Simulated assay, not measured.
Amino acid sequence: MTDGPDMAERPTIVLLHGGPGADHTLFKPELSAAAGFAQVIYLDQRGSGRSVRSGPLQWTWERWADDAIDFCDALEIERPVLVGTSSGGWVALLAAIRHPDRFAGLVLDSVMPGDTYERLEMFERLGGPEAREVALRYWAGDTGDEMTDAWERICLPLYSQQPGGDDVADGNRLRRVRWNDEVLDHFRMVLAREFDPWRGLDQVACRTMILAGEHDPVATASAARRFAHRLSHTDVRLHVLAKAGHGVFREAPKRSMDLLRDFVVSGHVPRLH
């Protein structure tokens, strides 16, 4: 970026979307503001959005994590801040575990899943006994059209705590997303059981910021607090935002952007030329 008559180096942020099976447009317009203090790079993960669809054999946490490294190598991005939201945060975390020397920082938004009883209690608190029952059956593997409809109608709206839901700030957000429902189904039936987000945390070496919504029904605030405690061997910041649900960057854009700016800028060390 410009600095008077000179050009000044600035940090790079690589963004990993959630879904899974969604795409990078979930970050827009909120994360576009980060271009004011960093170079912002979006990645549609393998199988999602505008990237190659491939197939289930390539839809693995390890492949996605290593894809993030290959992506940075291809673009010659050195030590970026890796930002992951929801399932994209699982990918970011695994990338930091498998490649601990590659990142200047790690930002995890709405990432750590709560224990089953915590998630069911939160769904019941937010949506009553019906929401709890639908969530229980959905997570148990009920794949019927009736259950899918009930999940989308009763439980998904509870992810957001904003009036009008996730589309309130930008009514075209969800219509822009190029979904691959097969990836989402693969996550639900296979990948969600395969990934242990608590394993290997001692390998995380970079500065880490954890963002959580106090009313997130899936990545619960209590799980985020346990996560921060487990990362106490490194520089870790935990922020639990009141009145926020799942996806803090969308739920509380101004506050989360302020936190991101402070985290990224305070840790940036310009390269010596």
Rank of each mutant, 00 (worst) to 15 (best):
I210N: 00
D185T: 09
T12S: 15
A252V: 12
D258E: 15
R53A: 13
L241W: 02
M209V: 12
H246E: 04
V83R: 02
D66Y: 03
P217F: 01
R188K: 12
T60A: 04
A223Y: 12
A212R: 03
F263H: 07
E78M: 03
Y117H: 15
L211K: 05
T220H: 13
F227S: 01
M7D: 05
R50L: 11
L201C: 06
L108V: 15
I77T: 06
R178W: 02
V111L: 13
E182L: 15
E121W: 06
H268A: 14
V264H: 00
E251D: 10
D196G: 07
R199L: 14
R137T: 10
W198Q: 09
G114R: 09
V204G: 03
L136A: 15
W139C: 00
E182S: 11
S232N: 07
R207D: 15
I13C: 14
A92D: 06
A33Y: 07
E118N: 09
F263L: 11
L57C: 10
L15D: 01
P100V: 08
P29M: 06
R153W: 00
H186G: 05
L43N: 03
L16C: 04
R199N: 10
V265T: 09
A205P: 03
T85P: 00
S86D: 10
E182H: 09
H215N: 15
